[in-house]
């Protein structure tokens, strides 16, 4: 199978696009597509500062790589969750992020910039990205599995607590750090798996909040974007492999057997038999959303500022995050 652009041997065939590409053209195609969707969904502009949530996995590190290569001012945020799972998961994930940054910095420092009128002095202040690290146990005194063990939230699995904590921390670091936008590495498979789950129960509230770009339309909320939302998970993994990004292959030990993975498998079964199913599902949803299918729900969403941390919350008083730690304080007393 040959690359459609140059005729060399293809490394990937994207059946939903009827497009096979060699490594060189695939490495060009992914950033081109990402840029296209950044513009299409009005995610951010070149002047804005981006905070990329990185986990050490293929999606977030590939996204960070692509944004930096596109010339965006993108810093990383790693949240240490304190998950061991028998594989030292959190520490390994952190190492991958640090390694990525070291590699990127060494590439930047070895770049010789020349112009028509000779070598140029370049202000690299914005070219060299930073990695913010928030260690949950150091900051709040407990790891995510510890918190999950003492609450009923998530019925024994830490995923719900983890999601809540991550959302809070990401929003806080974005806001306190003066970032214009928070970017996550969600790919199309992530999006359709969530969509599938929410469509099974017609959860209109969740469906309404699923979008490539969520504006910062409430005080204290950072704008959230998913620049890889149109990229298949397969393409994101292929990008990391071809680009030579070292990432953590095993996802969180707690993700095994999760509903979202089961949904991904069902959707991939359909994709195998009918290429483009996942993409069509997602695009049709975005069109329906755009046409106001869930508009009625929007009027009912009202947010208040949390009494303690000031972040938006649906209920008056403390937000769910602060209630989580409040319970620990009460218990300790």
């Amino acid at each position: 199978m040959k690359c459609r652009k140059c005729g060399h041997e293809a490394v990937i065939n994207m059946r939903q696009h009827k497009l096979a590409l060699c490594s060189e053209h695939f490495l060009e195609w992914v950033p081109e597509q990402t840029q296209r969707f950044i513009e299409k969904y009005r995610m951010f502009t070149p002047d804005e500062r981006i905070l990329v949530a990185v986990s050490g996995g293929k999606d977030s590190l590939s996204l960070w790589d692509v944004l930096l290569r596109l010339g965006y001012k993108a810093d990383g945020l790693y949240i240490g969750l304190g998950i061991d799972g028998g594989v030292d998961y959190s520490n390994q994930s952190h190492e991958m992020c640090v390694k990525f940054l070291e590699n990127f910095r060494s590439q930047i420092s070895s770049v010789n910039v020349t112009a028509d009128d000779g070598p140029q002095t370049v202000n690299t202040q914005y070219l060299i990205p930073k990695l913010h690290v928030v260690d949950i146990a150091k900051l709040y005194g407990e790891t995510i599995p510890d918190v999950a063990a003492r609450t009923t939230r998530g019925r024994g699995k830490p995923c719900s607590v983890c999601g809540l904590v991550k959302r809070h921390v990401m929003n806080r670091v974005a806001r306190d750090g003066g970032y214009d936008v928070l970017a996550t590495g969600h790919n199309l498979d992530d999006e359709v798996a969530v969509l599938f789950g929410n469509a099974l129960t017609w959860n209109a509230g969740y469906l309404l909040r699923q979008a490539p770009m969520l504006p910062a339309d409430k005080p204290g909320l950072a704008r959230k974007v998913k620049p890889f939302c149109r990229l298949y998970e397969r393409e994101s993994a292929a990008y990391a492999l071809v680009r030579g990004i070292d990432y953590i292959y095993d996802e969180c030990p707690f993700a095994e057997g999760s509903t979202s993975i089961a949904h991904k498998e069902i959707l991939n079964q359909m994709e195998k038999d009918s290429p483009g199913t996942k993409l069509q599902f997602y695009l049709s949803f975005l069109r329906a959303r755009e046409q106001g299918l869930f508009a009625e729900q929007a009027a009912h969403v009202e947010l208040n500022a949390c009494e303690k941390c000031g972040q938006p919350t649906s209920a008056p008083g403390l937000c769910a995050f602060c209630r989580l730690w409040e319970r620990r304080i009460t218990k300790d007393e």
Binding site: V11, N13, A20, S23, E233, A238, Y249, S258
Partner: peptide, 25 residues
């Protein structure tokens, strides 16, 4: 090296399959 799905496998080839979905696939 990543190889495409239409590649013909030759005698002696050893192919590593990398999971696309991390986690419990």
């Amino acid at each position: 090296k990543l190889i495409n799905e239409a590649t013909l496998l030759k005698d002696g080839d050893e192919v590593k399959l990398v999971a696309v979905i991390s986690g419990g696939v």
